[in-house]
Design a protein around this nucleic acid. Structure first.
Length: 476
RNA sequence: GGCGACGUAGCCAAGUGGUAAGGCAGAGCUCUGCAAAAGCUCCAUUCCCCAGUUCGAAUCUGGGCGUCGCCUCCA
């Protein structure tokens, strides 16, 4: 049982696949024309958990997430820098995939990660069909969709044409019939990348048509729709509205997607992160400073569809919460509780109850914070995995981050050259200082003992004494 | 101007009619040479404001105030 908020109907509805046990999902992916930011990952982390949860419910999920590897911005950037436009795309997309892996998202591969430029024939066929239906026309600089011809335009975003006309901003393009019309194909200007289009002219696809064409090709060749179409809330208009306009008139049985699910935007200093404002927080730097699982936990602690304000301090707070989850895990593991993941039982049932209500991951995490009985350990682990927070060996060591490379130098600076650390590996340096401290403690030389501990602390290494000896962890 | 979302403790946040989850921070205790880590305990008579509906409202209705988003490339 899963209820989901459906943007199309503006209601929370029970999710039922069109063709159980298959579930087909299309999520709008990245346009790699700028550095990927943390806002992107709020959306994809949510769909990752949705995917996991649908699989938990026993569905066979086909998840497709596209790559918009051709767009105006990367071309403009190439003109500025002199790089090849596709090197720019490749570079940013590699950064995206690197963060994707670090954050533990379920993998994308050739079958569920279509690139727009590899679907040019399908895009062109679709454009031809739209022209044939009088839903598109050829203008001087490109081929446009004739919005006034599609009666359903505005249904998804709850707008009507009059409102849109009234609110339309000044139109730069002189060649369109109507300011609301949007490009399906842009004829190439000199020096721009282009693909031939028999009968019309070489150029490149507009932004919206690729999704319609790829969704049809990969998820809905019968023209009867698929189950879930997702993306960030900023895509509702115009992108998803335009996708519907392109796809539904050509379908045997609309709607294009039964459910439309949108992730709430992530704000930065109470403003939306966007390419045009340039106020985004790149994900790469955050992943160097924080445990990726803390970032995941942070997002899952807020309802997926709510607007959320991002601060780096909130990751630190989430990291502290993650430590508690790890501590629960550790104490159960050390107590010898059976650790085989268990997909059913009372604890999992409580998780299902809240997740079933429009994916209430925050309540699910609250449930995990209440702890688990030893016999529920397997369920506890299963629930963590369901949220993408798979425990690793690191959880037993409650390590937070890697040791800094320059640790030995830092320690020499703190402690003075009398300590023989020059050139030592970070691990050795820590072990050496701990050994010195253990000796001092044995002689009850608390001053020296505390001096060594403070020096390590300032270098980012926290000590923990126990009956069995001294252990350490890295703290930012 | 049109459309929409949100406003819950110091901070983040769940909760859509039955009497306020959870996390962070903070306080106390246990443990410790002292710490740290861990554990335990405490921490909103109250949910932006004002009216109303109801036996009963954070939750429903109306009206304010405030913040943000979409209407332009955007996850």
């Amino acid at each position: 049982m899963l209820k989901l908020y459906n943007t199309r109907t503006r209601r929370v509805e029970e999710f039922r696949p069109l063709h159980p046990p298959h579930v087909r999902i299309y999520v709008c992916g990245l346009t790699p024309s700028a550095e990927p930011h943390i806002g992107h990952f709020r959306t994809y982390l949510f769909f990752d958990v949705l995917r996991r949860y649908l699989e938990h419910l026993g569905y066979d999920v086909r998840y497709v997430q596209n790559v918009t590897d051709i767009d105006d911005r990367s071309i403009a950037r190439a003109m500025d820098t002199g790089e090849h436009w596709y090197d720019i795309v490749r570079g940013f997309y590699a950064m995206f995939k690197d963060a994707w892996r670090k954050l533990g998202l379920l993998p994308l591969d050739a079958h569920n990660e279509p690139y727009a430029t590899r679907f040019i024939p399908q895009i062109q066929i679709m454009i031809s069909e739209l022209i044939g239906r009088d839903l598109a026309y050829v203008a001087r600089d490109g081929i446009y969709y004739r919005v006034s011809k599609f009666a359903g335009y505005g249904a998804l975003s709850n707008r009507n044409l009059e409102e849109l006309q009234a609110g339309a901003r000044i139109e730069i393009d002189e060649f369109k019939e109507d300011p609301l019309d949007f490009a399906l194909w842009k004829f190439a200007k000199p020096g721009e990348p282009n693909w031939p289009f028999e009968g019309y002219g070489a150029g490149r696809p507009g932004w919206h048509i690729e999704c319609s064409a790829m969704a049809r090709e990969l998820l809905d060749q019968e023209g009867c729709g698929f189950d879930i179409h997702g993306g960030g809330a900023d895509l509702i208009f115009p992108h998803h509205e335009n996708e519907i306009a392109q796809s539904e008139p050509l379908m045997r049985s609309p709607p294009m997607s039964n459910f439309w699910v949108h992730g709430g935007l992530l704000l930065h200093e109470s403003k939306k992160m966007s390419k045009s404002l340039g106020n985004f927080e790149p994900v790469g730097g955050l992943l160097e400073r924080h445990d990726p699982q803390a970032i995941r936990l942070l997002f899952l602690q807020t309802g997926y569809s709510k607007v959320m304000n991002f601060t780096e301090g909130s990751i630190t707070a989430a990291a502290a919460g993650l430590q508690r989850l790890k501590a629960t895990y550790r104490s159960l593991a050390l107590a010898g509780a059976p650790s085989t993941p268990q997909s059913s039982g009372a604890l999992v049932a409580r998780i299902e109850q809240v997740m079933g209500e429009d994916m209430n991951t925050a309540a699910a995490i609250a449930e995990l914070h209440r702890g688990a009985a030893p016999e529920e350990f397997g369920q506890f682990i299963y629930a963590l995995q369901l949220l993408g927070l798979s425990p690793s060996q690191q959880w037993m060591e409650h390590a937070q981050l890697e040791l800094p490379d320059d640790l030995a130098q830092k320690l020499v600076r703190e402690l003075g050259p009398t300590v023989a650390l020059n050139g030592a590996e970070p691990q050795e340096a820590v072990a050496h200082v701990i050994a010195l401290r253990t000796k001092a403690r044995a002689q009850k030389d608390w001053t020296e003992s505390d001096r060594l501990r403070d020096a390590l602390a300032r270098a980012g290494v926290a000590l923990e004494d126990s009956k069995d000896g001294t252990t350490w962890t890295v703290r930012p």
